[in-house]
Amino acid sequence: MQKNTFISVVLSIAIVGGALYFVTKTPEASLGNTEVAQTQNTEMRDGVQYVTLAAKGGYFPKLSSIKPDIPTKLIVKTSGTYDCSASLVVRSIGFQKVLAPTQEEIIDLGTPKPGEKIQGVCSMGMYNFQIKAE
């Protein structure tokens, strides 16, 4: 029995460790979502700063940085998105909406102060993103 316990504990640790290694790899490295992550995702147009995120199986890029003290809008692009990332909640500005499967949602973030963090999650909470003003 002690041998079984030992084998069981070793196996369990191996499984959990392996899964953690796989799951905690950076989301950018996972399949198919590389395009947005590696390019600059903010741009200035008519004095407004736009941050663009792709929403499908999570939000990409997961971390964005913007310049503070500029009126800022967030563009969330869905493309054939039916998963949780389509139902977006940005609590700090009171935004919650289920996005259409393919659309671009423009969300006004106001004028973020230096050091402000804007956190978005999907309604079930398993996907999230953060935008930092710095």
């Binding site: 997961k62 909470g125 999230n128």
Partner: peptide, 12 residues
């Protein structure tokens, strides 16, 4: 996390 009660711990 979805209710905003705790910070996200993971992002699968």
């Amino acid at each position: 996390v979805g209710l905003g009660l705790i910070d996200p711990l993971f992002n699968i």
